[in-house]
Amino acid sequence: MWAYLVRRTGEALLILLGISLVTFVLLYLVPADPARQIAGRSATVETVANIRAQLGLDQPFHIQYVRYLGNLLQGDLGRSYLQRSEVAELIAARMPATLLLMAAAIVVELILGLTIGIVAALKRNTAVDQSLMVFSFVTISAPQFVVGILLLYVFAVRLHWFPIGGYGSFAHLVLPAITIGLLGTGWYSRMMRSSMIDVLAQDYVRTARAKGLGRLRIILRHVVPNAVLPIIAMIGIDIGLFMSGIVVVESVFGWPGIGQLAWQAIQRVDIPIIMGVTLVSACFIVLGNLVADLIAPLVDPRIKLK
């Protein structure tokens, strides 16, 4: 167990190093000039050059990257070019909002996705099944900003059930959580459906019936716990999808999380923030996968961590 954790943590660090390098290269190649952005349109060439030198942007690539890594090791993500504060502080301040949104979205997609999947499998090849699968297909294919705006229009503007945007109460959380959660709902319902159909055909389900057990007990005790196993591994991978989703959804709903922070930084080529948010997101994805792998043996006794 400990050997496993140490090995996985080592692997995670390598992954993060790779991601930092790729992101750094991409930002280095971006044609926009951060110094020019900071200086403003009317600044002279000297001012821009000064700013560039001050930020170390005139140094060769490898020196910039090594310096960034050195700072990173000390927990220093750098300073924002424009907001004049530490990136780490900016991200830390916005993290709770994003984590809350993510947790709520996971709850939404698990509740909706698993329920739809279970019902569709039990009613397979009926009208119920087909309509549920059409619904899940729509949620997979609809772009999140469209879903978000649609939900806003119907439930906030028209029906006044929820606030139009902002942060602070449960009511604020509902619409953005559903917007992000719907995408996962589509995937999970389809996976759960096929997983359920697989499990329903297993010999041990026949054994459960031969024992004279009731239908509800067979489904809840024998079928669902087995059917849900492949989904657990999916949740870890899913965090990557969330991270891309929150950039859009937080902007649509004015949700003060790191997605919004990233969105603003991208528009202004605020490289330290973009780097910081990318690395933190990568950390989450890596961590999410690790947690999913650690949970797996608790749910499936056949899995042993080695």
Binding site: Q202, Y204, T207, A210, R221, H222, N226, D300, P301
Partner: peptide
């Protein structure tokens, strides 16, 4: 079932629930 007539199957490897 199980009370008056019981049944055992061919595949003992797959006839028991793996997570219980």
């Amino acid at each position: 079932r199980a009370n008056r007539i019981s049944m055992i199957f061919q595949e003992p490897m797959t006839s028991l629930n793996p997570v219980l």
